[in-house]
Nucleic acid binder design. Structure first.
Length: 609
RNA sequence: GGGCUCGUGGUGUAGCGGCCUAACAUGCCAGCCUGUCACGCUGGAGAUCGCCGGUUCGAAUCCGGUCGAGCCCGCCA
């Protein structure tokens, strides 16, 4: 018997019901107790005239006591029904009240779901926080999400396979968590950043269609959308093209969305598929929020040939930079300090400045740079940006087109949310694909995989995986490899990166070429990736897949901007668990056994030994 | 590693150099109440304002440091 299931039809039944005291109302001689479990609330009535013993017990009951009630279900008196409760038409008239456990007064309100509580306190008493409705509902939604994901995969013939948590450390990417080995003194395991190599090995093994709800670990600084450990839906398929993977994943996402949040409309079907360069050009982001427009416009044409009259713009042009803008609707009357704040935002993200043109309600443009550009160019810019009366045009000029895109992209996202342009209910999924294979790392003088070192190159770009020097192990900035595009796709939802994947390189020869560009010698390659390279010699099928962030997906489904809100026991930004007080000092015996000596935090060391 | 914000009874906030002997709401405790459901009424307890130091005649309030939490940059193949 749960606290959410009794209805008028149950009137007359003798029931045994247990739960937590949500609230107690004492009339002296008549006590009401709202009994709560995760299924709902049921009102218990204890009447002194009818059950004096039960009243004696109920007298000392307090919030969050755990009770078991024996009693009789009865329809409530006419006029006393509570339409706000599922069980509001009935009550249980208690014959006996047994206290299964007492409870201290909780440190915050368990029975008032909307009462704000500092998050650190919620984390310290997470078991109480989860008793509260909002947290409970989010965890249940997450459970439904995972359930729907599994259903969709089983139906499509995927096999769920678990992979080890104790793994081999691989360089690149994020920092590994390291686990010292006792059986092999001096050696370490690493926790997986993702099951990437293992899933590819499962393809070599002929598993054909694999998926896993996998825990991943990355020892990097935390953010609202990043935890040290997090959960990915990891999947891989054999004999597929980019299209096949995207088609399956898209169908799966639609199915899951409809099952878990049926009330939330999916903005566009099929999902828009945007080329990486288009995404950067139009939205300044590889994870664009498509719920609103406010696209980036290039001002090259509007500013005309020759000098613009504005030195900053001319200098940027002289070095081949870009000048682009967005038009923020309704912000034309922004105050000086508001615009200063936006300029500060722009600077924080790498821009040297932020020019603006405000269009008055009467359509006249005002700008500090109008005196340089002249009326004609200002008018052309307003027209190019399609800015109307009351709008604010924000212009970023920089020698680096990356900076221009990034700053305007972040401004666009920030202002889109501030101005309420994004419908919070809509799910705007989109694909971004054909990422560049590599990015030049000028410090290490090599090409870095933009996503995954195993990502495949587009067949027509395969010939670009060469170096100017002719020696594959001597990459340089001007290599054709910089232009190579990967068979790589990301899925974005409402401005968040939900997941990413690729069709992999399954031919050893090509993989070795790619790894060489990434700065690995043959020896190093074999030392680090010997397992998978060896496997590729035994008949690797073409394969590809994707990994999606379950925490982010659940957060977006729950209208949260923070994945801690959809995790039962998350860590704080400094990586601590406030409830269990992890991490904690190791027991000297534990690490002595591992042949380790703890020297304290690096900052505490006095240098030298 | 860096920038910004926050820290005041159990909880959430107000107070931002003297009017503070720190206010309000809620919770808690006690008493009364037989139809409430955020029950009501009466009374009561509860804080040296995160911690350390400084400025000042005087500090919750200003300054420095430190600890904790959050947002962000770096970092996150």
């Amino acid at each position: 018997m749960t606290c959410g299931q009794l209805r008028p039809e149950d009137a007359g039944r003798e029931v045994l019901i247990a739960g937590w005291v949500h609230r107690r109302r004492d009339y002296g001689g008549l006590i009401f107790i709202d009994l709560r479990d995760r299924y709902g609330l049921t009102q218990i009535v204890v009447n002194e005239a009818e059950s004096p013993d039960a009243t004696a017990v109920a007298d000392r009951v307090r919030n969050e006591f755990v009770l078991e009630i024996k009693g009789k279900v009865a329809r409530r008196l006419a006029g006393t029904e509570n339409p706000k409760l599922e069980t509001g038409a009935i009550e249980v008239q208690a014959q006996t009240v047994e206290i299964l456990n007492e409870a201290q007064t909780p440190p915050f309100y368990v029975n008032e779901p909307d009462a704000p509580v500092e998050e650190s306190l919620r984390l310290k008493y997470r078991y109480l926080d989860i008793r509260r409705r909002p947290m409970l509902e989010r965890l249940m939604l997450r459970s439904e999400l995972v359930h729907a994901v599994r259903e969709a995969h089983y139906r499509a013939g995927f096999v769920e396979v678990e992979t080890p948590i104790l793994l081999k450390s691989t360089p690149e990417g994020a920092r590994d968590f390291i686990v010292p080995s006792r059986l092999q003194p001096g050696m370490v395991y690493a926790l997986p950043q993702s099951p990437q190599q293992l899933k590819q090995l499962l393809m070599v093994a002929g598993m054909d269609r694999y998926f896993q709800i996998a825990r991943c670990f990355r020892d990097e600084d935390l953010r609202g959308d990043r935890q040290l450990e997090f959960t990915q839906l990891d999947l891989e398929m054999s004999f597929v093209t980019e299209q096949r993977v995207m088609d399956f994943v898209e169908a799966m996402i639609v199915e899951v969305s409809r099952a878990v949040v049926p009330d939330r409309p999916i903005q566009t079907l099929p999902f828009p598929r945007i080329d990486y360069h288009d995404a950067i050009e139009r939205f300044g982001s590889d994870k664009p929020d498509l719920r609103f427009g406010m696209e980036l416009v290039d001002l090259a044409g509007a500013l005309g040939e020759g000098s613009t009259g504005f030195r900053v713009f001319d200098e940027v042009r002289a070095v081949g930079g870009r000048i682009k803008a967005i038009a923020a609707p309704g912000m034309g009357n922004s105050s000086r300090s508001q615009i200063d704040e936006l300029a500060e935002f722009a600077r924080r993200h790498g821009s040297k400045g932020l020019a603006h043109i405000s269009v008055g309600a009467d359509g006249t443009a005002h700008s500090p740079i109008a005196k340089f550009l002249g009326e004609e160019r200002i008018a052309a810019v307003v027209s190019e940006a399609a800015a109307g009366p009351g709008d604010l045009i924000l212009v970023v000029a920089d020698a680096s087109r990356q900076v221009v895109a990034d700053v305007l992209g972040r401004l666009r996202q920030e202002l889109g949310l501030r101005l309420g342009l994004a419908d919070p209910n809509v799910l705007a999924y989109c694909w971004v694909f054909h990422f560049p294979m590599y990015q030049w790392d000028s410090e290490k003088r090599r090409w870095d995989a933009t996503h995954n070192p195993f990502s495949g190159v587009l067949p027509e770009d395969e010939k670009l995986l060469v170096t100017e020097s002719g020696d594959p192990y001597r990459p340089s900035r001007g290599d054709p490899a910089g232009r190579a595009r990967a068979m790589q796709y990301d899925i974005a939802l409402n401005g968040w990166e939900l997941g990413g994947g690729s069709v992999r390189i399954h031919r050893r020869e090509l993989l070795e070429r790619s790894f060489a560009l990434q700065g690995y010698s043959l020896d190093k390659m074999h030392q680090l990736f010997g397992g998978i390279l060896g496997a590729f010699d035994y008949g690797a099928p073409p394969h590809g897949g994707i990994a999606m962030g379950i925490d982010r997906w659940a957060a977006l489904f729950s209208h949260q901007t923070n994945i801690r809100e959809v995790m039962a026991f998350p860590k704080t930004q400094s990586g601590t668990d406030l409830m269990l007080e992890a991490p904690s000092q190791p027991d000297p015996e534990q690490y002595a056994e591992l042949g380790l000596r703890f020297e304290g935090a690096p900052s505490q060391q006095t240098g030298g030994q």
